[in-house]
């Protein structure tokens, strides 16, 4: 699955970074999301799903492919 972002929505809450620091980081300047790995499979998928679920502004989503 692929991690998609809608960058205009991001407020830099940092919940994705807490949920899956191996997949997400934050821009130092404004806290907005930096996706480190956009293609996720296996165990990483669990972290990605948790981050999507916990993102307060629905910035993140998972799509096929």
């Amino acid at each position: 699955m692929r991690i998609r972002t809608d960058p205009e929505r991001c407020i830099g809450a940092g919940r994705c970074f807490l949920a899956a620091p191996e997949l997400f980081d934050q821009n130092d300047h404004d806290g907005t999301v930096v996706v480190l790995v956009d293609q996720v499979t296996g165990d990483a998928l669990e972290g990605a799903r948790a981050a999507v679920d916990d993102c307060p502004t629905r910035t993140l989503s998972l799509t096929e492919g």
Binding site: I11, L18, Q26, D30
Partner: peptide, 16 residues
């Protein structure tokens, strides 16, 4: 408007 204002301070409140 809120998104811009929040981002202006968000960098000071990241876990890092």
């Amino acid at each position: 408007d809120h998104t811009l204002a929040r981002r202006a301070v968000a960098g000071d409140f990241t876990p890092r």
